[in-house]
Design a protein around this nucleic acid. Structure first.
Length: 508
RNA sequence: GGUGAGGUAGCCAAGUGGUUAGGCAACGGUUUGCAAAACCGUCAUACGAGGGUUCGAAUCCCUUCCUCACCUCCA
């Protein structure tokens, strides 16, 4: 088992700290997942992609990771929305959860090891609430419809340690819902009683539903034990959600809940946080209808996970929506894929020799350690992209040498050895970040189809025009060839002539 | 009011006190029938402002201006 060298910013201590594990050789990670009430948006995608990179990086570095990402399928908003649609709440949330899973998979995020739901863990939740009441950290309150259980924040001395706020200060400007029977305005519901005909589950407190927060404490404990190594989510969860989880879990077990707290920054649109409540969100479905998943991931990883990420939306004159920054990333994805395809084709040739002593070899050999180092330093993905860029640049130079061996600094067998090295090292790097999961032919086919569709172009018609231009070119009728090329370029088709013939692709 | 995160060249974005981050755009060059792609170069002695510490500060300290977020549901 290799040494764990990853450091991450810890919200609790407000410092960069090495990841440490309770049990040698296993990283236990819990990430707060979605409340399936609507489609997954770019903000969600960013957060879950961040943790997907963390998991992939740890695993690629030789560590075992147990990754839990929950689904909060019991929630007041779900009840409300399902009512509007005349659907059973759990049927509605199950349907939305399935869409969310698919959206995240489409973003290249690997499935977690466990994806527990609230509805599947009511028993554990009730038991935890009962423990908290028994230990004196929670109290029961009678209401008009049933019995609520509240967490008594004053009973937990460390309350506020994650968000670094003191109870009295937080209260000063707080806009918390006033419930008469609460002992403290900051007390929060563990269990919310409901009427017999309402959506809920029986418990020793009567029929009701779990409050927000308690489900994560219960499910984390069930799948990962009392002590987690890393708990993650976006920064808006620091307070109250994660603060409350700590209060519940630590009060119940008497053990520290999680060693590391990792929080991702927001995606903003027009300088504002993208969120459901503001209604300024763009769904993953929207993004992937316009751009490729690889481009989207490249865009997301272009900024370190803790900083804000601006998401631009532009409306063309014809009313078509575009995402300029993702279009830019898609051009970059094209570059990487084209480079890889080119070198793979050239490297397939037999006759590789020994590796030469050349600066390019040093570069190819240094990329992977540097990628490892960059990710170890708080998941510095922008640096990883820069490293991949340097690697790709060298691959292109090498491809040039293979195409014209006379201009190369070393003989062909050595060039072939370099090419194989470059490709092996590349593969070793990209598994850390989950980029370029699709093979080139798949990427090329799906981006071509999508771009043709978006531009309203017909593939056969373009192919015919490309052939017509090639024929004119062969006949040295460059005037005709250039007119045809002009028309194609105007339509968004890029042509690449080579000794092997002409290739074309649609611009992103 | 309390608590955080930021302000880096036209735009995006790294930066671990001390030799080039990187990308996009633009403009040159190599290459090409001409292009495109690719590669090389220029833009780039940039770090919100003002002080201070230091041989040396984007980085550490102080003051100040601006932006965003959390303190209500949020990834």
């Amino acid at each position: 088992m290799p040494a764990l060298t990853t450091t991450l910013y810890n919200t609790m201590t407000q410092r960069l700290e090495p990841v440490d594990t309770v049990e040698e050789g296993v990283v236990r990670l819990y990430v707060c997942g979605v409340t399936p009430q609507d489609r997954v948006h770019v903000g969600h995608a960013r957060t879950f992609t961040t943790f997907d990179v963390l998991v992939r990086h740890l695993r690629a570095s030789g560590h075992r990771v147990v990754f839990v990402r929950n689904v909060t399928d019991v929630d007041d908003k779900i009840l409300l929305k399902s009512k509007e649609r005349g659907e059973e709440p759990l049927a509605f949330s199950a349907r939305m959860a399935e869409l969310a899973k698919n959206d995240l998979r489409s973003c290249g995020c690997a499935n977690p090891d466990h994806e527990p739901t609230v509805s599947g863990h009511i028993v554990e939740i009730i038991a935890l609430v009962e423990t908290l009441v028994a230990k004196g950290f929670a109290y029961v309150v009678d209401t008009a419809v049933g019995r609520d259980v509240y967490y008594d924040v004053k009973s937990f001395g460390a309350y506020g340690k994650l968000s670094h706020r003191k109870l009295d200060e937080a209260q000063a400007g707080a806009r918390v819902a006033v419930v008469e029977q609460k002992r403290d305005p900051m007390d929060f519901a563990l269990w919310k009683g409901c009427g017999e005909s309402d959506w809920g589950w029986p418990s020793s407190f009567g029929k009701g539903r779990p409050g927000w927060h308690i489900e994560c404490s219960a499910m984390a404990q069930k799948y990962l034990g009392n002590r987690l190594d890393i708990h993650g989510g976006a920064i808006d969860l620091i307070f109250p959600h994660h603060e409350n989880e700590i209060a519940q879990s630590e009060a119940a077990t008497g053990e520290p809940f999680s060693s590391h707290w990792v929080h991702g920054g927001f995606v903003t649109a027009d300088q504002e946080k993208m969120s459901k409540s503001l209604g300024n969100f763009v769904t993953v479905e929207d993004v992937l209808s316009r751009n490729d998943a690889e481009a989207f991931r490249l865009f997301l990883l272009g900024t370190q996970y803790r900083g804000p990420l601006a998401f631009d939306v532009v409306k063309d004159d014809d009313g078509r929506v575009r995402f300029p920054s993702i279009d830019e990333a898609e051009k970059r994805a094209d570059y990487f894929y084209t480079t890889l395809d080119l070198l793979e084709g050239l490297a397939a040739k037999e006759g590789a020799g020994d590796l030469p002593k050349h600066a390019m070899r040093t570069l190819f050999e240094s990329t992977h350690p540097k990628v490892q180092e960059a990710l170890d330093r708080d998941l510095n993905t922008p640096v990883v992209l820069a490293l991949l860029g340097d690697h790709a640049k060298a691959m292109n130079e090498l491809a040039g040498w293979l195409a014209k061996p006379k201009k190369a600094p070393c003989p062909e067998p050595q060039l072939l050895a370099l090419a194989k090295l470059a490709l092996t090292e590349w593969s070793a790097c990209v598994v850390h970040v989950g980029l370029f999961q699709a093979a080139f032919p798949e990427y090329a086919a799906r981006t071509r189809a999508r771009r043709l569709g978006l531009r309203g172009l017909d593939e056969a018609a373009i192919e015919a025009k490309v052939q017509a231009r090639a024929a004119a070119k062969t006949a040295k009728d460059f005037a005709t060839a250039d007119v045809l090329r002009g028309e194609l370029v105007a339509a968004g088709i890029e042509l690449t002539d080579s000794p092997e013939g002409t290739r074309w692709r649609v611009s992103p």
